[in-house]
Design a protein around this nucleic acid. Structure first.
Lengths: 140, 140, 140, 140
DNA sequence: GTGGTCTAGACCACG
DNA sequence: GTGGTCTAGACCACC
């Protein structure tokens, strides 16, 4: 069964984080169309969270058409979900990047400085994934 | 007088948006040390926002040491503010970029795709600043 | 053997849909008094449904007096069933129509609009039964 | 302030009934774009229902784009809502009528009988609206 | 004052 | 076993 976890430092609503984990799992191929997601009760135990909170995440995903219910059995990933998740993921990233860029430029920040920071952070992320502590900014 | 505006689509707290606008204005040189910021009442009218909300933004900026009260006159930008704002601006941008990158990678998105989107959006922002409608992504 | 099928899009309980199909089959003459209904196992395979679900539908129909068990043989359609099913069918249709009409009027919908929609849908149904794709509303 | 009420005999989920009341109120003109809906707390008291239940109805309506939040102030009817509600109401009625008609015909019911029942019920509804007890089927 | 999140726990229908 | 509804009540941020 797929393992999901939460990042305690994330201040977004828990149900939103859960939904995003599922979206990313589908986009990344860890959860395939037709596959069942963990039951509300199981996942709520796994995440140490109230079942209602998981149920809300699942409900939102259902409304989005990403999950569909199999009566009496649980919820499964819908057929067209992978493509939609990939697209959603891409647009989410695009929208957030756009907002940062727009605000930085509006604050008269040098475009070259923005790009420099972006590449620094990309390197940091890549390093953090390969070795335990790569170069760049070690802390945080 | 300095002109500030808000983006209604931004879901962050309004007081935070206002404070950020002031920080960016100082970092960008639009507001200089010793200069007075608009009064709470004026700014609240200008932004069509509750005066309490503006007051809270100013309160936060005061606590931060960025604004100082001049008895009977209002609030002015503090002396050392510019450098601190530039630093704050840089770190704010860095932190937000980092978060987007981290979450995208965590969702197993291809790093090259992330960079591609970033550069697309940079070009779009640059185009939007020069001409009214440059190349790139026309809509939005 | 009588062929029944289910509409996956129907959100009513499956056991109720099955029972209704049987009622309508009796009312329409496709199942005659004295005739045996498919066994629980056969029907559950035919419908790709849990046997318990079929069993529950049959149980309800038995309680209603529409089916009677023949020891060791299964269930057969009861003698007086046809008339009762016709009546049940009529009342079921009436009740559902009434509900739609009542709610539409309660929502201040123009009565003429309701009738217009009804007749459109009647024509559509008639067309769909005669030719594969008649006039009216092609899509669904 | 707009008065909403619930029909205790309705077995649909309460939150759905509340949402429908709002939709119909908007479609019927009782609630106009820009107008505020009752606060969650007020409406929950008015309907003798848990605030969470009202909140869920409002949340669904927000997701639908029918309501939009005015921060710190409450929820108001969105601009384009009226047309969308009318359309939604029409399609809801159409879909439900279609289902009844389809199932009745599939059960080999005489089309003329279906129409007869429909018109009977239309007359009944019209009568029930004008006089307290018109002709037709008095009870129920 | 507003909406929103989360928890806890009960109850239900369905399969 | 599954999801879904509803209640009750706490706590939060925002305006």
């Amino acid at each position: 069964m797929i393992i999901l976890d939460l990042n305690a430092a994330d201040e977004r609503p828990i149900y939103g984080q859960i939904a995003d984990r599922v979206r990313f799992a589908v986009a990344g191929g860890a959860l395939r169309p037709g596959e069942m997601v963990p039951s509300v009760r199981d996942l709520s135990k796994q995440l140490v969270v109230n079942p209602n909170t998981v149920a809300r995440a699942y409900r939102d995903l259902q409304a989005e058409g990403l999950l569909e219910s199999v009566r009496g059995m649980g919820l499964q990933v819908a057929e067209g979900a992978v493509e939609r998740c990939r697209e959603a993921r891409r647009e989410m990233v695009r929208q957030r990047l756009r907002r940062v860029i727009d605000e930085a430029r509006q604050g008269r920040m040098d475009p070259a400085e923005i790009e420099a920071i972006f590449h620094e952070e990309c390197r940091r992320a890549a390093a953090g994934e390969n070795g335990a502590a790569g170069p760049g900014r070690g802390h945080v």
